[in-house]
Amino acid sequence: MSVDARDRLLSVASPIALFVLWEIAARAHWIDVRFYPAPSSIARTFGTMLANGTLLANTLITLERFAIGIVVGGVPALLLGLAMGLYRPIYAIVDPLISATYPVPKSAILPLILLVFGIGEASKIAMVAIGMFYPVVINTAAGVRQIDRMYFDVGRNYGARGWAVFRTIAFPGALPVIMTGVKLGAGLGLILIAVAEMLGAPSGLGFVILNAWQIFQVNVMYVGIITIAVIGFALTVLLNEVERILIPARPRH
C-alpha cells in the first residue's frame, strides 16, 4: 500500500472509529444519552425529518439566505477592492474605514442589524453579506496591489484602458488572493447565518438548532448541527473546485 493510500484510509477510518466509540459509549450508558444520544438514534431522527420534509425546507431556506448574502456582500466587495487596488486615492479614502470596522466581531453587531433591517429576511442576508464583504474587499485590494507593475505597463503599451485593465490584468492577476478571501468570507457567512437564524427567525437551520434546545429535542439539535457541518464541508469542496477551474495557470505542486 502506498503512503498516500494509507493516509487516505486512516483519514476515513478515524471519524468512523469515533462514531463507533460514541455508539458503544451511549449504549453502555457511559455517557449521558440525554445530551449525547447514540449516533443510531440521531440517524433515525434524521430519517424522520427527511421524510416529513422539515429538514429539506429549513436547509433550503438557509441556503437561499446564504447564497443571496454571498452575492450581496461579495460583488460590491470585489468591485471596491479592484478600485482600491488600482487607484491610490480610493485606497487612501476607503482603507481607514475598513481597517477601523474590520476588528468588530460580526456577531456583536447582530442586534444593530436587527434594528436596522428588522427581523425579516433582510437581516439574515445582511449578516452573511457582512461576513463575506470584509475578507473579499481586503484580499482583492491586496491582491491587485501585489501585481507586478510591469503587467500594467504591458497593458498600457498594448492599448488596455479602463474596464479592460480590470478584466485582463487586475482581476486575473489578483484572482488567487481573491479566492482565498472568498473562502474565508463564505466560511464566516455560514457562521453568521447560523447565529442570525437563532435570533428572530421562524425558519432555517439555525432556528431548528435553537428551537430543539428550547423544547429539549436533543436529537433534532444534532441533526441541525450535522447538516450545517455538511454544508460547510460541501462549500469547501465546491470552492476548491471553482478555484481549480478558474486558476489553471498556477503551477501545480
Binding site: 510591469m150 503587467y151 505597463d153 504591458v154 498594448y158 479592460a164 490584468i169 492577476g173 484572482l175
Partner: peptide, 20 residues
C-alpha cells in the same frame, strides 16, 4: 524580463494587443 501574463495561455498572450 518576464512580461507575459501568467494567467493567459501562449495564444492569449500573443493575441493581447490585437484583442485590446
Amino acid at each position: 524580463g518576464e512580461s507575459l501574463f501568467p494567467w493567459m495561455t501562449v495564444r492569449e498572450n500573443a493575441a493581447y494587443g490585437l484583442r485590446m
